[in-house]
C-alpha cells in the first residue's frame, strides 16, 4: 500500500514548472538583451582594410578635411569612397615608394579598384541620403564618432531604427553650425540655456523638422 508518487514529487513538480517557465522567460529576455549589446550591434569590431590606412594620421597630422576624400557627402546619397587616383594625388609625390602603399599602386596600374571593407551597411529598404543630413547641420562625428582617434574604423552607432528615430523625433540637440560640420571636436555651448538657444536658432535657420513618417526612410 503506497502512493504512486513520493511526497518529494510535489516539490519536483513545482520546481520543474518554475524551471521551464524561467528558461523560456529567461531565453526571451536574453534575446531581447542580446540585440542591445554592442557586440550584437557590431560596435566594437575594428574593420581592417586591405591598405593600412590610418584616419588618425590623415585627419590630425595632415589636417585633411573629411570632404577631401569623401567628396560627395554634400551632394549625394553616398558620402563617396575615394578612388585610387584620389590617393595618388598625394602619394604619387610622398611615400611613393613605401611598401605599405603597394596595393594602391597596384590598383592604379592595373585599374582594379581597391576592395575596401564596408563599415556601415543599411538594408536596401531604407532610404538614406548623406547630403540632407549634412545640409541640415548634422556633423560627421555625430554618427561616425571620433574618426580622428580611430586607427581602424569602428562603428559607433547601432544604425538600428530606434537610434535613427531618436534623432528624427528630436533633432535639436544634434545640430551644429554648418561651418563646423566636419569638425571632430565641436561641442555645443556648455551652458544649457545657450545650447538650447543655438539649437532652436539652427532649427529655424536650416528649416529642420521632426520627420517620423514611414515614407521618410522607406519609400
Amino acid at each position: 500500500m503506497s502512493a504512486l508518487f513520493k511526497p518529494s514529487a510535489n516539490f519536483i513538480a513545482r520546481f520543474s514548472l518554475v524551471a521551464v517557465a524561467s528558461v523560456l522567460g529567461g531565453g526571451l529576455l536574453g534575446l531581447w538583451g542580446y540585440f542591445r549589446t554592442p557586440y550584437a550591434q557590431g560596435l566594437q569590431e575594428e574593420i581592417v582594410q586591405p591598405v593600412l590606412f590610418d584616419h588618425r594620421h590623415h585627419v590630425v597630422d595632415d589636417l585633411i578635411d573629411c570632404r577631401y576624400c569623401h567628396f560627395n557627402v554634400e551632394r549625394g546619397a553616398s558620402a563617396g569612397v575615394p578612388s585610387t587616383e584620389m590617393c595618388l594625388n598625394c602619394h604619387s609625390q610622398i611615400w611613393n615608394k613605401s611598401p605599405k602603399l603597394e596595393p594602391v599602386r597596384r590598383s592604379y596600374f592595373t585599374g582594379a579598384p581597391i576592395e575596401w571593407n564596408r563599415v556601415h551597411q543599411l538594408p536596401d529598404f531604407t532610404y538614406f541620403n548623406h547630403s540632407i543630413h549634412v545640409g541640415k547641420g548634422i556633423g560627421c562625428a555625430t554618427c561616425h564618432g571620433r574618426v580622428d582617434e580611430m586607427a581602424a574604423i569602428t562603428k559607433v552607432a547601432s544604425l538600428q531604427m530606434s537610434w535613427c528615430l531618436a534623432c528624427h523625433r528630436n533633432p535639436a540637440p544634434n545640430l551644429r553650425p554648418k561651418d563646423q560640420i566636419t569638425s571632430m571636436t565641436w561641442q555645443p555651448p556648455a551652458d544649457p540655456a545657450a545650447a538650447q538657444l543655438l539649437a532652436s536658432d539652427l532649427m529655424k535657420s536650416y528649416d529642420v523638422n521632426s520627420r517620423v513618417s514611414c515614407t521618410t526612410c522607406h519609400r
Binding site: 502512493a3 508518487f5 513520493k6 518529494s8 510535489n10 513545482r14 514548472l17
Partner: peptide, 12 residues
C-alpha cells in the same frame, strides 16, 4: 496544484 502526492493517495 501541481500536487501529485497527497497522503490520501497512500490508501489503495
Amino acid at each position: 496544484f501541481p500536487r501529485p502526492y497527497d497522503p490520501l493517495f497512500e490508501v489503495e
